[in-house]
Amino acid sequence: MKLLTHNMLSSNIKGVTNGFPLKIEAEKIIERPVEINPVFLKNMFAKLEWKPLVEASRTMGFSELPEDVPDMSVLDSDEFLQKFHHALLEIHLEEGALVCPETGRKFPVQKGIPNMMLHEDEV
């Protein structure tokens, strides 16, 4: 699971009002190089929740993203784009869990795949 996907997931348990972002518990992290695409990154920047990305990326061992939401102008910096690209698309949570911030319920991540299936009493 890439951190872009993490940025789009929230706890879907019935009654949970504050299910985003899911906290990451990382057991195995892998990195897979992907070709950088500045057009895609610029497009995606506006769709992201920045702080959850910074936090998730730090949990995954990468602390080089700026803490505060950067100004759009940073998208012209190759150095920034490289870090943004790496955090968003190259770091994978291979094994671990995503934890609901409200209830503590863990959604397992196995072989890189988050399991968001709910139990009967959670729907």
Binding site: M1, L4, L9, I113, P114, N115
Partner: peptide, 10 residues
């Protein structure tokens, strides 16, 4: 990216 879920839950 693959997600095991019901429709698009989560």
């Amino acid at each position: 990216e693959l997600i095991r879920t019901n429709i698009a839950s989560g």
